[in-house]
């Protein structure tokens, strides 16, 4: 394992960074799209069931199947990394839409009424009142999406996009467990670091939560 790392530092580090951006980028795009859709689902009650049901259906489709079907939908090449980024964005989006809607719904009606009474309206209330209060719920969704993306990206090695998952297949084809193990450990480390960063970010954004915890 150590030897492999010593002999192929460039390969491993480039795979690591590919893995990193392929895991994170879909979550970022997914969140940006999920915020307005989730807002609609929480603001206009009748849209909630169809939106979350569709999201649930998309989330049901196995990832490998979605990777493979992407070219016929997007017209891309089979080995193009775009397939995976789009597929994972769909997943992240499907998960986050529901989380954003539920998070916004979790804002107590009293708080909303108070905010409206003080003169917040529409976008202002969304950005300065509803969204901050929904941060803990949305954070929980982001953690799940990011951590599972790290694992899903590695499956992409099957369809030939080189990243940490390539260590699995290389270890397997050469029958050297150490190489595969190295891939697993790097994936775990990546997932745990990203998870920790999200938790940290959420803490910075919600100082009132720590104030309560300390009491």
């Amino acid at each position: 394992m150590i030897n492999y790392l010593k002999n192929n530092p460039d390969n491993v580090s480039s795979w690591f960074f590919t893995h990193l951006w392929m895991s994170v980028l879909p979550v970022v795009i997914g969140l940006i799209i999920a915020l307005p859709i989730g807002w609609v689902a929480s603001r206009y009650r009748w849209t909630y069931p169809p939106i979350t049901n569709l999201a649930g259906l998309l989330y049901t489709i196995p990832s490998l199947a979605l990777f493979i079907l992407m070219p016929s939908i997007l017209g891309t090449k089979i080995l193009s990394p775009v397939n995976m980024v789009v597929a994972l964005t769909v997943y992240s989006l499907a998960l986050l839409v529901r989380v954003v809607a539920d998070g916004l719904n979790s804002v107590a009606p009293d708080i909303r009424a108070a905010a409206t009474a003080m003169g917040f309206s529409g976008i202002g209330r969304f950005l300065r009142v509803d969204l901050p209060i929904a941060v803990p719920v949305i954070t929980a969704g982001l953690r799940v999406a990011t951590v599972s993306n790290v694992s899903l990206v590695s499956v992409g090695a099957l369809i030939g996009v080189p990243q940490l998952g390539s260590l699995f297949t290389e270890g397997f084809s050469r029958y050297i467990p150490g190489i595969t193990l190295l891939g697993i450990l790097l994936c775990l480390a990546l997932a745990l670091v990203l998870d920790a960063l999200i938790v940290l970010g959420s803490r910075v954004l919600t100082p009132w939560q720590r104030a309560v915890a300390k009491r």
Partner: peptide, 9 residues
């Protein structure tokens, strides 16, 4: 966080 594909191989 455990990559299932890697674990299987």
């Amino acid at each position: 966080a455990l990559p299932t594909f890697g674990l299987l191989l």
